[in-house]
Simulated scan of single mutants.
Amino acid sequence: MAEEAEADEAHRADEGDRSGTGEAGGPRRALDVMRTASGEFTELSGLRPERVIRCERADGGTGWVLEAEVTELTRVPDTMSLIAVYELAADRDGHVTGFRRVSRRERGRADGR
């Protein structure tokens, strides 16, 4: 019986780690942060990220910095659509604390950064 209880407790701890909360509310995984921040960015801006092109810890490990590509204006042909890169600032749990557009280009053109 004790072995089953220990196994169940270990499984719950493992599930907690996979959910991104880590031990004792520790830092979240990058994947969880990207999902949370992308969803909140969509709610705030009305734009849906097509891909996250940067995700890294902010200085001091107190938050995250992400960059996401979004289609700002769809045109025909698609190569003329306007693609923008937004920088997102997020807290340690992935909740967006701010964002700004850092570049914009036509889809068919190379990134000039």
Rank of each mutant, 00 (worst) to 15 (best):
A110W: 11
R12M: 14
E4N: 12
T97E: 13
L31E: 11
V96Q: 01
T97V: 14
R105D: 09
G60A: 04
A13Y: 09
G63E: 00
G94K: 04
R92M: 04
R113E: 15
T79K: 14
T71H: 09
E67T: 07
G22D: 12
R100L: 12
T62P: 01
R48P: 06
T71D: 02
S45H: 08
W64H: 03
E40R: 05
P49F: 01
F99H: 03
L31H: 09
R12C: 01
R48W: 09
G22Y: 08
A24I: 10
R113S: 13
I53R: 10
G98V: 03
S81F: 04
T62C: 07
P77M: 04
G26T: 05
S45M: 08
R107D: 11
D111F: 13
T79H: 12
G61A: 07
R57D: 03
T36K: 11
E87I: 04
R29K: 10
R104Y: 00
L47M: 14
A90N: 03
R100S: 10
R29F: 06
R57P: 04
D8Y: 13
R29Q: 11
S103W: 08
H95R: 15
E43V: 08
M34P: 01
A110I: 03
E67H: 15
A84P: 01
Y86G: 01
E67M: 10
M34E: 03
R105Y: 05
R109A: 13
T79I: 13
E23S: 12
S103G: 15
A84L: 06
R12S: 08
L88G: 00
L66W: 00
L66K: 02
T62D: 13
T71N: 09
R113C: 06
R113G: 11
L66H: 02
A10P: 04
R105N: 06
R12W: 13
L31M: 09
E56I: 05
E43F: 09
D78Y: 03
T62F: 03
R12Y: 12
P49H: 04
W64N: 01
R105I: 03
A13W: 12
D111Q: 11
D8E: 15
R92C: 00
L73T: 07
T62W: 02
D17I: 10
M1L: 14
L82H: 06
R48Y: 07
A110Y: 11
A68G: 10
I53S: 11
I53D: 06
C55L: 05
T62G: 11
